[in-house]
Measured scan of single mutants.
Amino acid sequence: VTLFVASYDYEARTEDDLSFHKGEKFQILNSSEGDWWEARSLTTGETGYIPSNYVAPV
């Protein structure tokens, strides 16, 4: 399981994006799509795309 933590807050801009807060942890589901990764929030359980430059490895 690949875990990352949010370095910043992010507000979703499309329905496919995932909003999150600094400190929130994610399981990365797919990182092969470039700068936007499909992730599941371990806080909310929601799945969506997050900007990879807003998160760091745990």
Rank of each mutant, 00 (worst) to 15 (best):
V1Q: 12
V1F: 13
V1N: 12
T2M: 13
T2D: 11
T2A: 10
T2L: 13
T2S: 11
T2C: 14
L3A: 06
L3Q: 07
L3P: 04
L3G: 03
L3W: 10
L3Y: 12
L3I: 15
F4A: 08
F4E: 01
F4C: 09
F4R: 01
F4W: 15
F4L: 04
F4I: 03
V5C: 08
V5E: 10
V5P: 00
V5I: 12
V5Q: 09
V5K: 05
V5A: 06
V5W: 05
V5H: 04
A6K: 00
A6S: 05
A6L: 01
A6V: 02
A6R: 00
A6W: 02
A6G: 03
A6Y: 02
S7I: 15
S7M: 15
S7Y: 14
S7A: 13
S7W: 14
S7E: 14
S7K: 15
Y8V: 09
Y8L: 10
Y8W: 12
Y8K: 12
Y8M: 13
D9V: 03
D9C: 08
D9T: 07
D9R: 04
D9Q: 05
D9G: 06
D9K: 04
D9F: 04
Y10N: 02
Y10Q: 01
Y10G: 00
Y10S: 01
Y10L: 01
Y10T: 00
Y10W: 09
E11P: 04
E11S: 10
E11W: 09
E11G: 05
E11T: 13
E11Y: 10
A12P: 04
A12G: 11
A12C: 06
A12D: 02
A12E: 03
A12I: 01
A12N: 05
A12F: 02
R13E: 10
R13H: 10
R13D: 08
R13I: 11
R13W: 07
R13N: 09
T14D: 11
T14G: 15
T14I: 06
T14F: 15
T14P: 02
T14E: 08
T14C: 15
E15G: 13
E15A: 13
E15Y: 09
E15F: 10
E15Q: 12
D16I: 13
D16M: 14
D16F: 15
D16R: 15
D16G: 15
D16S: 14
D16N: 15
D17E: 15
D17P: 00
D17T: 15
D17I: 12
D17K: 15
D17L: 10
D17H: 15
L18I: 10
L18R: 01
L18G: 00
S19A: 06
S19N: 06
S19R: 04
S19W: 02
S19M: 03
S19L: 01
F20H: 01
F20Y: 01
F20L: 05
F20T: 02
F20G: 01
F20K: 00
H21R: 14
H21G: 07
H21Y: 11
H21V: 14
K22V: 10
K22S: 07
K22F: 05
K22P: 03
K22T: 07
G23C: 06
G23V: 00
G23A: 02
G23F: 05
G23L: 03
G23K: 01
G23R: 00
G23H: 04
G23S: 03
E24V: 03
E24L: 01
E24M: 05
E24Y: 04
E24R: 00
E24S: 04
E24T: 07
E24K: 01
E24A: 04
E24I: 02
E24G: 01
K25P: 05
K25E: 09
K25A: 08
K25H: 12
F26T: 00
F26I: 05
F26A: 01
F26S: 00
F26N: 00
F26Y: 01
F26E: 00
F26P: 01
Q27V: 15
Q27T: 09
Q27Y: 14
Q27E: 14
Q27L: 14
Q27C: 13
Q27N: 06
Q27G: 02
I28E: 02
I28W: 01
I28V: 09
I28L: 06
I28F: 03
L29I: 11
L29G: 02
L29E: 05
L29W: 05
L29K: 04
L29A: 04
N30D: 12
N30L: 07
N30K: 08
N30H: 08
N30A: 08
N30I: 07
N30V: 08
S31P: 09
S31K: 13
S31M: 15
S31E: 08
S31C: 15
S31N: 12
S31R: 12
S32G: 10
S32E: 10
S32Y: 10
S32W: 10
S32T: 12
E33S: 13
E33I: 11
E33H: 14
E33D: 15
E33F: 12
E33A: 13
E33Q: 14
G34I: 11
G34M: 10
G34P: 15
G34T: 12
G34H: 12
G34R: 12
G34L: 11
G34A: 13
D35Q: 09
D35S: 09
D35E: 12
D35K: 07
D35V: 08
D35A: 09
D35P: 10
W36Y: 11
W36L: 07
W36C: 08
W36A: 05
W36D: 03
W36Q: 06
W36P: 03
W37E: 03
W37M: 05
W37G: 01
W37L: 08
W37Q: 02
W37Y: 08
E38G: 02
E38T: 10
E38W: 15
A39Y: 03
A39K: 00
A39S: 01
A39F: 03
A39G: 06
R40D: 03
R40W: 08
R40K: 13
S41H: 07
S41C: 07
S41T: 03
S41Q: 05
S41N: 13
S41A: 06
L42V: 08
L42E: 09
L42N: 04
L42C: 14
L42T: 07
T43E: 14
T43H: 10
T43V: 09
T43I: 08
T43G: 06
T43D: 11
T43P: 00
T44M: 01
T44P: 02
T44V: 01
G45L: 06
G45H: 06
G45T: 02
G45E: 05
G45K: 04
G45M: 06
E46K: 15
E46H: 11
E46L: 15
E46Y: 09
E46M: 14
E46I: 10
E46N: 11
E46F: 11
T47F: 06
T47H: 07
T47G: 03
T47A: 07
T47E: 08
T47C: 11
T47S: 09
T47K: 10
T47M: 09
G48F: 05
G48V: 03
G48H: 04
G48K: 02
G48I: 04
G48R: 00
Y49T: 07
Y49N: 07
Y49I: 08
Y49Q: 08
I50P: 00
I50Q: 00
I50K: 00
I50D: 01
I50S: 00
I50G: 01
I50W: 00
I50R: 00
I50H: 00
I50F: 01
P51W: 07
P51I: 03
P51E: 03
P51S: 05
P51G: 03
P51L: 07
P51C: 09
S52W: 08
S52P: 07
S52H: 07
S52N: 06
S52E: 03
S52A: 13
S52C: 12
N53G: 11
N53T: 11
N53M: 12
N53W: 15
N53I: 10
N53Q: 12
N53C: 15
Y54W: 07
Y54L: 14
Y54S: 12
Y54M: 13
V55W: 03
V55I: 10
V55E: 03
V55G: 03
V55Y: 03
V55D: 03
V55P: 03
A56R: 14
A56E: 14
A56I: 15
A56L: 13
A56Y: 14
P57T: 05
P57S: 08
P57H: 06
P57L: 09
P57E: 09
V58M: 12
V58K: 04
V58I: 13
V58E: 11
V58F: 12
V58R: 01
V58W: 13
